[in-house]
Design a protein around this nucleic acid. Structure first.
Lengths: 118, 118
DNA sequence: TCAATACATCCGTTTATACGTATTTAATAG
DNA sequence: CTATTAAATACGTATAAACGGATGTATTGA
């Protein structure tokens, strides 16, 4: 990565961050509600904790989300200012048509999560 | 890739297609002018023909561009309807600030290409 | 101080993408 | 038909990302 292309590499990185189905499912959650802790995302997506944690780290390194600690829980939320390249409303609509995301949204509404932070 | 997630995989694939600096430079050209043939892109970007050809095939498989033959030349152009998730105007603005893309646009304006189709 | 919960990270492995060089295929001009 | 130019693809290789399971670190509450 040459210094000249810092900027181009940043844009590239934004798209890389969005080019994974699990990260898109996480994004869908963060579009719907202001913030989530890791264990909530683990429960809703039904995917292993280390996997979710790694994807969240990836999103954070790419500048798409920020996080803060609240007791034992790490909360994650979107940084919308860094996503001006994306038509969020259209993305949301497209995501909502995907089977796995429909399921996620159902589990989100029900809210009977196994983790203590709900 | 399960059938259920066809749609999510398509969205993922769109972003994958955008997550490479060379493909973004190609995209920048196709935003600026209606269509390009392969040899023009090769000349403007100064990158090997096989590399460009492979990236164009990738963009095509991802549904971002279409192509047609005109004599010896293959022309490529954007399929804008498939990019409604992207804020094209903002993407354009961001791309135009990148050093390598500034250079591309200079060579595009000059227009003194080596290939016979200019 | 010790146990429990939440989260991050390491390890080994697998898969996807990238590249350059060389070759193959397609169309045209002579 | 043959040579030439344009473009696609095959091959070998290098790097980046993905995963699950195990381990390490932080915070809280008993």
């Amino acid at each position: 990565m040459t210094l000249d292309n810092m900027k181009l590499d940043n844009i590239t990185q934004l798209f890389k961050a969005l080019s994974d189905p699990i990260r898109l499912r996480i994004l869908n959650l963060l579009i719907t509600k202001d913030s989530f802790c890791v264990c909530e995302i683990v429960d809703i997506l039904g995917i292993g904790q280390s996997t979710i944690s790694r994807h969240l780290a990836y999103l954070k390194n790419s500048g798409l989300v920020e996080s803060w600690r609240e007791g034992v829980w790490m909360h994650y939320s979107l940084i919308k200012e860094n996503m001006t390249i994306i038509e969020m409303e259209n993305l949301k609509l497209q995501l909502e048509q995907c089977d796995s995301i429909i399921e996620d949204n159902k589990r989100l509404k029900k809210g009977n999560l196994a983790c203590s932070n709900e």
